[in-house]
Protein backbone atom coordinates (compact mmCIF):
# COMPACT_ATOMS: atom_id res chain seq x y z
CA UNK A 1 0.00 0.00 0.00
CA UNK A 2 2.68 2.45 1.09
CA UNK A 3 4.85 1.28 -1.80
CA UNK A 4 2.00 1.95 -4.20
CA UNK A 5 1.49 5.45 -2.81
CA UNK A 6 5.24 5.97 -3.01
CA UNK A 7 5.36 5.31 -6.75
CA UNK A 8 2.15 7.06 -7.71
CA UNK A 9 3.33 10.11 -5.76
CA UNK A 10 5.93 10.78 -8.43
CA UNK A 11 3.12 11.47 -10.88
CA UNK A 12 1.59 14.38 -8.99
CA UNK A 13 2.66 17.94 -9.61
CA UNK A 14 2.82 20.74 -12.14
CA UNK A 15 5.23 19.14 -14.52
CA UNK A 16 3.76 16.00 -16.08
CA UNK A 17 5.97 12.91 -16.13
CA UNK A 18 4.53 9.60 -17.28
CA UNK A 19 4.79 6.47 -15.06
CA UNK A 20 7.16 4.65 -17.38
CA UNK A 21 9.54 7.61 -17.44
CA UNK A 22 9.49 7.81 -13.63
CA UNK A 23 10.34 4.13 -13.36
CA UNK A 24 13.09 4.44 -15.91
CA UNK A 25 14.65 7.42 -14.13
CA UNK A 26 14.54 5.69 -10.76
CA UNK A 27 15.95 2.46 -12.12
CA UNK A 28 18.69 4.34 -13.96
CA UNK A 29 20.14 5.29 -10.60
CA UNK A 30 20.72 1.63 -9.79
CA UNK A 31 21.48 0.06 -13.17
CA UNK A 32 22.18 1.84 -16.42
CA UNK A 33 19.18 2.14 -18.75
CA UNK A 34 19.02 3.81 -22.16
CA UNK A 35 17.99 7.42 -21.64
CA UNK A 36 14.45 8.09 -22.84
CA UNK A 37 13.67 11.22 -20.83
CA UNK A 38 14.58 14.91 -20.78
CA UNK A 39 16.94 16.49 -18.27
CA UNK A 40 14.07 18.52 -16.86
CA UNK A 41 12.19 15.33 -16.14
CA UNK A 42 15.20 13.91 -14.35
CA UNK A 43 15.58 17.05 -12.23
CA UNK A 44 11.90 17.08 -11.37
CA UNK A 45 11.87 13.43 -10.38
CA UNK A 46 15.18 13.18 -8.58
CA UNK A 47 15.77 16.67 -7.16
CA UNK A 48 12.22 17.83 -6.43
CA UNK A 49 9.82 14.95 -6.08
CA UNK A 50 12.14 12.25 -4.74
CA UNK A 51 13.34 14.17 -1.66
CA UNK A 52 9.85 15.44 -1.00
CA UNK A 53 8.34 11.97 -1.14
CA UNK A 54 11.03 10.45 1.03
CA UNK A 55 10.72 13.33 3.47
CA UNK A 56 6.95 12.84 3.68
CA UNK A 57 7.48 9.15 4.44
CA UNK A 58 10.14 9.90 7.03
CA UNK A 59 8.34 12.74 8.76
CA UNK A 60 5.01 10.92 8.83
CA UNK A 61 6.61 7.74 10.13
CA UNK A 62 8.74 9.54 12.70
CA UNK A 63 5.87 11.62 14.11
CA UNK A 64 3.59 8.58 14.32
CA UNK A 65 6.12 6.28 15.94
CA UNK A 66 7.18 8.90 18.44
CA UNK A 67 3.51 9.62 19.18
CA UNK A 68 2.91 5.91 19.81
CA UNK A 69 6.00 5.75 22.01
CA UNK A 70 5.07 8.84 24.02
CA UNK A 71 1.52 7.57 24.52
CA UNK A 72 2.77 4.22 25.72
CA UNK A 73 5.39 5.65 28.05
CA UNK A 74 3.07 8.25 29.54
CA UNK A 75 0.24 5.70 29.69
CA UNK A 76 -1.99 8.37 28.23
CA UNK A 77 -3.67 8.16 24.83
CA UNK A 78 -4.06 11.94 24.64
CA UNK A 79 -0.35 12.63 24.56
CA UNK A 80 1.22 13.81 21.31
CA UNK A 81 4.90 14.25 20.43
CA UNK A 82 4.59 17.95 21.27
CA UNK A 83 3.92 17.23 24.96
CA UNK A 84 7.43 17.93 26.20
CA UNK A 85 7.92 21.07 24.17
CA UNK A 86 9.59 19.68 21.04
CA UNK A 87 7.44 21.61 18.59
CA UNK A 88 7.51 24.90 20.47
CA UNK A 89 11.26 24.65 20.87
CA UNK A 90 11.77 23.87 17.19
CA UNK A 91 9.41 26.68 16.22
CA UNK A 92 11.39 29.21 18.21
CA UNK A 93 14.70 27.91 16.87
CA UNK A 94 13.48 28.28 13.31
CA UNK A 95 11.99 31.72 13.96
CA UNK A 96 15.23 32.88 15.54
CA UNK A 97 17.19 31.64 12.55
CA UNK A 98 14.88 33.48 10.14
CA UNK A 99 15.02 36.74 12.09
CA UNK A 100 18.80 36.61 11.96
CA UNK A 101 18.61 35.95 8.19
CA UNK A 102 20.67 32.81 8.59
CA UNK A 103 20.96 30.39 5.66
CA UNK A 104 18.28 27.70 5.46
CA UNK A 105 20.58 24.98 6.77
CA UNK A 106 21.30 27.01 9.89
CA UNK A 107 17.58 27.64 10.41
CA UNK A 108 16.96 23.90 10.38
CA UNK A 109 19.87 23.24 12.66
CA UNK A 110 18.62 25.85 15.13
CA UNK A 111 15.15 24.28 15.03
CA UNK A 112 16.67 20.90 15.76
CA UNK A 113 18.85 22.18 18.60
CA UNK A 114 16.08 24.18 20.26
CA UNK A 115 13.68 21.22 19.98
CA UNK A 116 16.13 19.06 21.91
CA UNK A 117 16.88 21.91 24.30
CA UNK A 118 13.19 22.37 25.17
CA UNK A 119 12.80 18.70 26.06
CA UNK A 120 16.09 18.70 27.95
CA UNK A 121 14.80 21.57 30.10
CA UNK A 122 11.51 19.71 30.69
CA UNK A 123 13.40 16.61 31.79
CA UNK A 124 15.69 18.70 33.96
CA UNK A 125 12.75 20.40 35.66
CA UNK A 126 11.13 17.09 36.49
CA UNK A 127 14.46 15.78 37.73
CA UNK A 128 15.04 18.56 40.24
CA UNK A 129 11.44 18.84 41.40
CA UNK A 130 9.64 15.56 41.33
CA UNK A 131 12.02 12.65 41.00
CA UNK A 132 10.32 10.14 38.73
CA UNK A 133 6.80 11.54 38.77
CA UNK A 134 5.25 11.68 35.32
CA UNK A 135 2.86 14.49 36.18
CA UNK A 136 5.71 16.84 36.98
CA UNK A 137 7.33 15.91 33.67
CA UNK A 138 4.17 16.65 31.70
CA UNK A 139 3.58 19.91 33.56
CA UNK A 140 7.20 20.84 32.96
CA UNK A 141 6.69 20.16 29.26
CA UNK A 142 3.59 22.36 29.21
CA UNK A 143 5.40 25.19 30.93
CA UNK A 144 8.34 24.95 28.55
CA UNK A 145 5.96 24.82 25.58
CA UNK A 146 4.16 27.93 26.78
CA UNK A 147 7.49 29.66 27.36
CA UNK A 148 8.76 28.94 23.87
CA UNK A 149 5.38 29.86 22.38
CA UNK A 150 5.81 33.25 24.02
CA UNK A 151 9.29 33.52 22.54
CA UNK A 152 7.85 32.67 19.12
CA UNK A 153 5.33 35.47 19.56
CA UNK A 154 8.13 37.89 20.40
CA UNK A 155 10.04 36.72 17.35
CA UNK A 156 6.97 37.29 15.16
CA UNK A 157 6.40 40.69 16.73
CA UNK A 158 9.86 41.96 15.95
CA UNK A 159 10.16 40.18 12.60
CA UNK A 160 10.07 42.13 9.36
CA UNK A 161 6.37 41.97 8.36
CA UNK A 162 7.21 41.89 4.66
CA UNK A 163 9.43 38.84 4.36
CA UNK A 164 10.44 37.28 7.70
CA UNK A 165 7.00 37.23 9.32
CA UNK A 166 5.34 35.33 6.47
CA UNK A 167 8.28 32.93 6.38
CA UNK A 168 7.92 32.22 10.10
CA UNK A 169 4.15 31.82 9.82
CA UNK A 170 4.53 29.51 6.86
CA UNK A 171 7.12 27.43 8.69
CA UNK A 172 4.81 27.07 11.68
CA UNK A 173 2.11 25.73 9.38
CA UNK A 174 4.46 23.00 8.24
CA UNK A 175 5.23 21.88 4.75
CA UNK A 176 7.59 19.92 2.62
CA UNK A 177 7.86 22.20 -0.41
CA UNK A 178 11.39 23.36 0.45
CA UNK A 179 12.78 19.91 1.15
CA UNK A 180 15.94 18.95 -0.71
CA UNK A 181 18.02 15.80 -0.84
CA UNK A 182 20.36 17.33 1.75
CA UNK A 183 17.49 17.67 4.22
CA UNK A 184 16.67 14.04 3.75
CA UNK A 185 20.25 13.05 4.43
CA UNK A 186 20.31 15.30 7.50
CA UNK A 187 17.19 13.77 9.06
CA UNK A 188 17.45 10.17 8.00
CA UNK A 189 20.11 9.16 10.51
CA UNK A 190 18.48 10.38 13.76
CA UNK A 191 15.12 9.05 12.60
CA UNK A 192 16.27 5.57 11.60
CA UNK A 193 18.48 5.17 14.67
CA UNK A 194 15.65 6.20 16.99
CA UNK A 195 13.17 3.89 15.31
CA UNK A 196 15.67 1.05 15.47
CA UNK A 197 16.26 1.55 19.20
CA UNK A 198 12.53 1.74 19.89
CA UNK A 199 12.01 -1.37 17.81
CA UNK A 200 14.62 -3.24 19.84
CA UNK A 201 12.98 -2.12 23.09
CA UNK A 202 9.43 -2.72 21.83
CA UNK A 203 8.65 -5.42 24.37
CA UNK A 204 9.93 -3.38 27.33
CA UNK A 205 7.80 -0.43 26.20
CA UNK A 206 4.84 -2.77 26.11
CA UNK A 207 5.33 -3.89 29.70
CA UNK A 208 5.82 -0.28 30.78
CA UNK A 209 2.26 0.60 29.76
CA UNK A 210 0.66 -1.49 32.53
CA UNK A 211 1.88 0.93 35.17
CA UNK A 212 5.13 1.83 36.90
CA UNK A 213 4.74 -0.33 39.95
CA UNK A 214 3.67 -3.43 38.06
CA UNK A 215 6.30 -2.96 35.39
CA UNK A 216 8.97 -2.62 38.06
CA UNK A 217 7.70 -5.80 39.72
CA UNK A 218 7.93 -7.49 36.31
CA UNK A 219 11.62 -6.66 36.20
CA UNK A 220 11.60 -3.58 33.97
CA UNK A 221 14.11 -0.90 34.84
CA UNK A 222 11.40 1.71 34.42
CA UNK A 223 13.38 4.92 34.79
CA UNK A 224 16.07 3.90 32.34
CA UNK A 225 13.72 2.48 29.71
CA UNK A 226 11.46 5.52 29.96
CA UNK A 227 14.37 7.90 29.55
CA UNK A 228 15.72 6.05 26.51
CA UNK A 229 12.27 5.97 24.89
CA UNK A 230 11.66 9.68 25.54
CA UNK A 231 15.10 10.52 24.15
CA UNK A 232 14.56 8.48 20.98
CA UNK A 233 11.07 9.83 20.41
CA UNK A 234 12.30 13.38 20.98
CA UNK A 235 15.32 12.97 18.73
CA UNK A 236 13.29 11.79 15.77
CA UNK A 237 10.53 14.31 16.30
CA UNK A 238 13.12 17.07 16.42
CA UNK A 239 14.72 15.79 13.21
CA UNK A 240 11.35 15.55 11.48
CA UNK A 241 10.11 18.94 12.63
CA UNK A 242 13.35 20.65 11.66
CA UNK A 243 12.88 19.73 7.99
CA UNK A 244 9.10 19.95 7.77
CA UNK A 245 8.01 22.63 10.20
CA UNK A 246 5.21 21.93 12.62
CA UNK A 247 2.79 19.31 11.37
CA UNK A 248 0.06 18.74 13.87
CA UNK A 249 -2.24 15.82 14.48
CA UNK A 250 -0.22 13.08 12.80
CA UNK A 251 1.53 12.04 16.00
CA UNK A 252 -1.73 11.95 17.91
CA UNK A 253 -3.99 10.53 15.24
CA UNK A 254 -2.02 7.77 13.59
CA UNK A 255 -1.13 5.82 16.76
CA UNK A 256 -4.85 5.86 17.63
CA UNK A 257 -5.84 4.56 14.24
CA UNK A 258 -3.16 1.90 14.44
CA UNK A 259 -4.35 0.91 17.90
CA UNK A 260 -7.93 0.62 16.70
CA UNK A 261 -6.83 -1.76 14.00
CA UNK A 262 -4.26 -3.97 15.71
CA UNK A 263 -4.65 -3.27 19.44
CA UNK A 264 -2.25 -1.67 21.92
CA UNK A 265 0.56 -4.24 21.74
CA UNK A 266 3.62 -2.07 21.03
CA UNK A 267 5.32 -4.91 19.14
CA UNK A 268 2.73 -4.46 16.39
CA UNK A 269 1.84 -0.86 17.12
CA UNK A 270 5.29 0.42 16.19
CA UNK A 271 5.56 -1.03 12.66
CA UNK A 272 1.90 -0.35 11.89
CA UNK A 273 2.15 3.26 13.10
CA UNK A 274 5.27 3.68 11.00
CA UNK A 275 3.60 2.43 7.84
CA UNK A 276 0.32 4.23 8.41
CA UNK A 277 2.05 7.48 9.33
CA UNK A 278 4.30 7.37 6.27
CA UNK A 279 1.47 6.54 3.94
CA UNK A 280 -0.89 9.07 5.48
CA UNK A 281 1.48 12.02 5.31
CA UNK A 282 2.54 11.20 1.77
CA UNK A 283 -1.07 10.95 0.70
CA UNK A 284 -1.99 14.24 2.35
CA UNK A 285 1.07 15.91 0.86
CA UNK A 286 0.01 14.70 -2.59
CA UNK A 287 -3.41 16.18 -2.05
CA UNK A 288 -1.85 19.40 -0.84
CA UNK A 289 0.31 19.92 -3.87
CA UNK A 290 -2.24 18.92 -6.48
CA UNK A 291 -5.62 19.98 -5.08
CA UNK A 292 -5.46 23.73 -5.74
CA UNK A 293 -3.51 26.05 -7.96
CA UNK A 294 -1.73 27.28 -4.83
CA UNK A 295 -0.18 24.69 -2.58
CA UNK A 296 -2.00 24.19 0.73
CA UNK A 297 0.34 24.00 3.75
CA UNK A 298 0.67 20.42 4.96
CA UNK A 299 0.06 21.17 8.64
CA UNK A 300 -3.30 22.70 7.81
CA UNK A 301 -4.34 19.78 5.64
CA UNK A 302 -3.36 17.10 8.16
CA UNK A 303 -5.66 18.76 10.67
CA UNK A 304 -8.44 19.43 8.17
CA UNK A 305 -8.48 15.85 6.94
CA UNK A 306 -7.42 14.26 10.21
CA UNK A 307 -10.13 15.63 12.47
CA UNK A 308 -13.21 14.37 10.63
CA UNK A 309 -11.49 11.15 9.64
CA UNK A 310 -10.68 10.50 13.27
CA UNK A 311 -14.28 11.08 14.35
CA UNK A 312 -15.40 8.67 11.64
CA UNK A 313 -12.99 6.01 12.85
CA UNK A 314 -13.93 6.55 16.46
CA UNK A 315 -17.60 5.92 15.69
CA UNK A 316 -16.78 2.90 13.56
CA UNK A 317 -14.24 0.94 15.57
CA UNK A 318 -14.78 1.20 19.28
CA UNK A 319 -12.34 -1.51 20.15
CA UNK A 320 -12.00 -1.27 23.91
CA UNK A 321 -12.60 2.45 24.29
CA UNK A 322 -15.35 3.13 26.72
Amino acid sequence: MVVAIFFTSFLFGRYPVTPDKVMAILISKIISVPKSWTDTMETVVLQVRFPRIVAALMVGGALSVSGAAYQSVFKNPLVSPAILGVSAGAGFGAALGMILYLPWVAVQLLAFVFALLAVAISLFISKIIGGSSMIVLVLGGMVISAFFQALISIAKYIADPLDTLPAITFWLMGGLSKVSNNDVIFAILPITISIAVLYLLRWQVNVLTVGDEEAAALGVNINRIRLVVVLCATLMTAAAVSISGIIGWVGLLIPHMARMIIGPNFQLLLPVSLLMGSGYLLLVDNIGRSAGSVEIPLGILTSLIGAPFFIFLLSKAKKGWS
Binding site: S72, K75, N76, P77, T209, V210, G211, R259, G263, P264, N265, K319, G320, W321
Partner: peptide, 8 residues
Protein backbone atom coordinates in the same frame (compact mmCIF):
# COMPACT_ATOMS: atom_id res chain seq x y z
CA UNK B 1 -7.52 -2.20 38.30
CA UNK B 2 -7.93 -1.40 34.66
CA UNK B 3 -5.21 -0.58 32.18
CA UNK B 4 -5.19 2.56 30.07
CA UNK B 5 -4.86 0.64 26.83
CA UNK B 6 -7.16 -2.26 25.93
CA UNK B 7 -4.86 -5.29 26.15
CA UNK B 8 -5.99 -8.81 25.49
Amino acid sequence: TSTVFPYQ
